[in-house]
Design a protein around this nucleic acid. Structure first.
Length: 218
DNA sequence: ACCCAGGTGGCCC
DNA sequence: GGGCCACATGGG
């Protein structure tokens, strides 16, 4: 059995369907992806709630808002020296590029949209792919720290290079939107719950209830 | 008082 | 092109 498939099945069996991304609209996915960087989802949820309450969870209003106002709402997610400008800059780009219409923005070949996303300040490979996969409906495999950590520990691959890991999955796992969405979500859920960055000590390096059984990871 | 979080961009070599 | 580092709040 193809390893990437069996790992997927084990994660699914262990955690169940995740139904990601947790957002109401594609625009919320984008805002969430930009705010998510290096913080906990709980804080992103608060920030999104703040923006929504202020009527700023919409392309044009956010594009027109003052940085200080945006900062006030997203401060809880940290890195507020950069996130507000990136958020607003991205919205302005959406307007310039597609009149703020996401359907129109995403209506191009995947690679073209991906290049456009990567050209935006604050949008690296993971953020771009998350947006493509969860907001744009483009089937790209999202790689994140958990994907790399877990994949390496269970011997799926040895690299820690984003593109290599992405190719690993895209060339083995069936190319399917729902499957990609679910797989990435499962990696994150498993990682948050079990796969710690560093072993705390030699005696209890990992949690024992990992879906991959004993061994090194968890 | 640490360590970590679903990264990214800027430096330095 | 790879290897650090700052960015900043909130929670364990």
């Amino acid at each position: 059995m193809e390893p990437s498939v069996s790992v997927y099945r084990r994660l699914l069996g262990r955690h169940g369907p995740q139904h990601w991304w947790p957002a109401e609209t594609p625009f919320e996915v984008i805002v969430g992806a930009l705010l998510m960087q290096q913080t906990a989802w709980r804080n992103v949820a608060k920030a999104i709630g703040n923006l929504k309450a202020a009527g700023l969870l919409e392309v044009k209003s956010l594009a027109a808002a003052r940085l200080g106002i945006i900062r006030k709402h997203v401060r809880v997610t940290g890195l507020y020296g950069t996130k507000p400008a990136r958020l607003r800059g991205f919205c302005r780009h959406l307007i310039a590029r597609a009149d703020g219409d996401l359907g129109r923005y995403f209506a191009r070949p995947t690679e073209e949209v991906r290049e456009d996303l990567l050209a935006q300040d604050g949008v690296g490979p993971e953020t771009a792919d998350s947006i493509l996969l969860y907001a744009g409906g483009h089937p790209v495999f999202v790689v994140d720290a958990y994907t790399i950590r877990i994949g390496r520990r269970i011997g799926l691959f040895a690299t820690d290079d984003y593109n290599e890991v992405q190719r690993f999955f895209e060339s083995r796992f069936p190319k399917d939107l729902a499957g990609y969405q679910e797989y990435h979500a499962l990696f994150v859920t498993h990682g948050k719950e079990i796969c710690r960055p560093k072993p705390r000590c030699a005696i209890c390096p990992v949690r024992p209830d990992c879906a991959f059984g004993r061994g090194r990871d968890g």
